[in-house]
Simulated assay, not measured.
Amino acid sequence: MLSKEKLARISELSKMKKAGTLTTEQAKEQTALRQEYLDTFRSTMRDTIENVRVFDPSGEEVTPEKLRQKQSKNLN
């Protein structure tokens, strides 16, 4: 997860952009911070999805085969 300081900075830069006071250097910083945020989010989401098991109402596991293969690969 991104630090609170970085998230606050993203918000601050966003407000500056809306106000029209964002400099070129700050725009580059904003782009880099947003990319770091997206990379972190995607990584966390991928880890979460790769550890999910799906069960139907009768209790049978119905996790898609592709996901099962990925999970067993991660265990090794």
Score class of each variant (00 low, 15 high):
Glu25Phe: 11
Ser43Gly: 12
Gln71Asp: 02
Leu67Met: 10
Glu29Ile: 04
Ser43Met: 10
Ser72Met: 15
Lys15Glu: 12
Ser43His: 09
Arg53Glu: 10
Ser11Asp: 13
Glu12Val: 03
Asp39Thr: 06
Lys4Thr: 08
Val52Asn: 03
Tyr37Arg: 08
Arg42Glu: 10
Leu7Met: 10
Thr31Asn: 04
Val52Ser: 02
Leu13Glu: 02
Gln30Tyr: 15
Lys18Glu: 10
Ser72Arg: 15
Arg42Lys: 14
Gln35Arg: 13
Lys70Arg: 14
Lys18Ser: 06
Gln26Asn: 04
Lys6Asp: 07
Lys70Ala: 02
Lys17His: 05
Glu12Lys: 07
Ser14Arg: 06
Leu38Val: 13
Ala32Ile: 05
Glu60Cys: 05
Arg46Met: 05
Ile49Trp: 05
Lys4Gly: 06
Ser72Ile: 15
Glu61Ser: 06
Arg53Ala: 10
Thr63Met: 03
Asp47Tyr: 10
Glu60Ala: 15
Asp56Glu: 12
Leu67Gln: 03
Leu2Gly: 00
Ser11Pro: 00
Glu65Trp: 07
Glu29Phe: 05
Ser14Pro: 00
Asp47Met: 13
Thr63Arg: 07
Ser3Asp: 12
Thr40Ser: 11
Glu36Lys: 03
Thr48Ser: 11
Ser43Val: 10
Thr31Lys: 13
Asp39Leu: 14
Thr31Met: 05
Met45Asn: 05
Lys6His: 07
Gln26Glu: 10
Asn74Lys: 15
Arg68Met: 14
Met16Ala: 09
Lys28Asp: 04
Ala8Asn: 06
Lys70Ile: 08
Met16Cys: 02
Asn74Arg: 15
